[in-house]
Amino acid sequence: MAADQFACTAAVIEETPDAVVVSNLGVASYVLAEVGDRERNFYLWGSMGSTTATGVGVAHGTDEQVTVLAGDGSLTMSLGVCSTVATADQSNLTVVCFDNGIYGTTGGQPTPSIDFAAAAEAQGLPAERVDSDDEFAAAYADAVARDGPSLIECTVEPTDPEARPTFDFPHIPRRVRDSLTE
């Protein structure tokens, strides 16, 4: 079984319409843009492996929900970041790892197979594993409601979205900032 990355991303926006959503470079950002552009979409165009840590920084300065949409390849690159999420212990932070089993953005080469939920738990970060749209929506609602950060490992079908966020990279965080501070 595998969930649909579009449906799960749409479920994030539906459950937490005011959340800052920090999306991994490539497919996660393209899907987010296709689901719908919003001021608080913090699309990344680079820094593979740093998506989750970027979310930790955002979550420090706001009380709004902050949701990271990571990829399995990127999270593998900095798997120890789960310990930083656990250390920071922010109740407004949720990390979603979309595990499509590939480096989708670079052409679909297989990623190492990792039990991300177990890896997160081993670092003190509570985690859940899901593989359907309904399970994801329920797990996400639980994650948002809980008093502490957590990770959801979501097995998804590979997808190749058409949409792209703006190529004007500095505009993306500026817009998030204006939305949070004005």
């Binding site: 800052v20 920090v22 913090f42 820094s47 492996g49 740093s50 998506t51 989750t52 840590a53 970027t54 979310g55 930790v56 920084g57 955002v58 420090h60 300065g61 706001t62 900095s78 120890g80 970041v81 310990s83 930083t84 250390t87 920071a88 965080p173 998030v176 900032r177 949070l180 501070t181």
Partner: peptide, 25 residues
């Protein structure tokens, strides 16, 4: 506030992310 990270790349990313909230890191 201080935040200990696992790798300095995460220190840079977290400090960068904080800017969108109006903070100075």
């Amino acid at each position: 506030d201080t935040l200990r990270v696992e790798r300095e790349e995460s220190a840079i990313a977290a400090a960068s992310g904080a800017w969108v909230t109006g903070e100075r890191a």
